[in-house]
């Protein structure tokens, strides 16, 4: 009778539906099942380099590609990589059709050709942005010179605002980053660098002003926890580039979709959410200031002390 009762009790719990599955009948030989290549042929491959985290990219920047894809009536796959150079490598290999990349990677990509400048966002009426040197609110630092011996976060080895600019400032003090900072690291995204400063995990960082202002707009608390102690000269805004081998007709349709985005209510809404007014075409010379910065920093690194003041 006890056993009977126990059987009733187990019956109560086992009332859940079960599904018959055989683990022995297998029909696929590969362990890693990648995306279907045939399907990839139809879709365009759009990349966004990780100026912000991959998650935030999906939430914000992806909206631009969604809009454009609908306008040109083509499917696309969003491609994200961990570093700027990984994205650039894919681009060089011809695996990407279009990419929204930062100014540093643009300069790097153009140096080996294969890319073509398509459009640049206009933010606050300008097509340029800056590097912000930021420290935690409680820091006593007034300039990057005060961060000597402290810890510092760079964004990416190819980042204009996140690496080249602060290094140029350190070099101006006659030092290399390795000598100047007690410790430095790469966060691989502007939001990660801002987070490190905000949480006090590093003493300072250099970040993209567009990203910082955008985040500050959505999170008013940010400016009370993070202080800007340096602003760089202007650099050309991160551009959208297409692969040089892309058919002219498609390039034209993409350009048209981007340039007319602000005239369309849906496009305007997407732009406004990203704190952008519109997309415009610019000359490659807009990025000369970036090139000069790269040249100066790279030459100092190959010949330390030569450019010291």
């Amino acid at each position: 009778m006890v056993v009977f009762a126990a059987a009733i009790a187990s019956g109560c719990v086992q009332s859940e539906k079960t599904y018959q599955v055989s683990f022995n009948k297998k029909n696929l030989r590969k362990r890693i099942l990648g995306p279907d290549r045939a399907d990839q042929g139809k879709n365009l491959q759009f990349a966004i380099s990780t100026m912000i985290s991959p998650e935030e990219t999906v939430l914000y920047y992806k909206k631009i590609f969604d809009y454009v894809a609908i306008k040109i009536d083509r499917g696309y796959d969003l491609v994200q990589k961990n570093t700027y150079s990984q994205t650039n490598d894919l681009f060089r290999e011809g695996a990407l059709d279009m990419a929204f990349i930062s100014s540093g990677p643009y300069v790097d990509l153009m140096s080996t050709s294969g890319a073509e400048l398509l459009a640049v966002p206009v933010v606050d009426g300008k097509v340029t942005y800056h590097s912000y040197i930021i420290v935690p609110e409680g820091s006593s630092a007034r300039s990057i010179a005060d961060l000597e011996g402290g810890s510092f976060a760079f964004v990416d080895p190819l980042s204009t605002t996140g690496r080249y600019y602060p290094i140029s400032q350190v070099q101006a003090l006659g030092r290399s980053p390795g000598e100047f900072f007690g410790r430095y690291l790469y966060s691989y995204s502007n939001t990660a660098s801002i987070g490190l400063v905000r949480d006090g995990d590093v003493d300072g960082a250099a970040v993209n002003s567009l990203i910082f202002d955008f985040l500050a707009m959505n999170d008013p608390g940010l400016k009370s926890e993070v202080r800007i102690i340096g602003v760089s000269q202007p650099f050309g805004n991160p551009p959208i580039v297409v692969h040089a081998s892309m058919p002219e007709e498609l390039k034209e349709r993409l350009r048209e979709a981007l340039f007319s985005m602000h005239k369309d209510p849906e496009g305007r809404r997407v732009l406004r959410n990203l704190n952008m007014q519109r997309f415009t075409g610019v000359d490659d010379s807009l990025y000369d200031s970036v090139r000069m910065l790269f040249e100066s920093v790279d030459s100092y690194e190959s010949n330390p002390g030569a450019g010291a003041e």
Binding site: T18, F23, N27
Partner: peptide
């Protein structure tokens, strides 16, 4: 994208996973 089964993926499981991607289910296996 990835699975941990040795020597291929169970044929019966794929449609079940596709159908029940939000709620846990009980499978009766060997």
């Amino acid at each position: 994208v990835y699975h941990t089964f040795d020597g291929g993926f169970p044929a019966d499981l794929a449609p079940l996973l596709h159908e029940h991607s939000r709620k846990s289910i009980l499978l009766e296996t060997e």
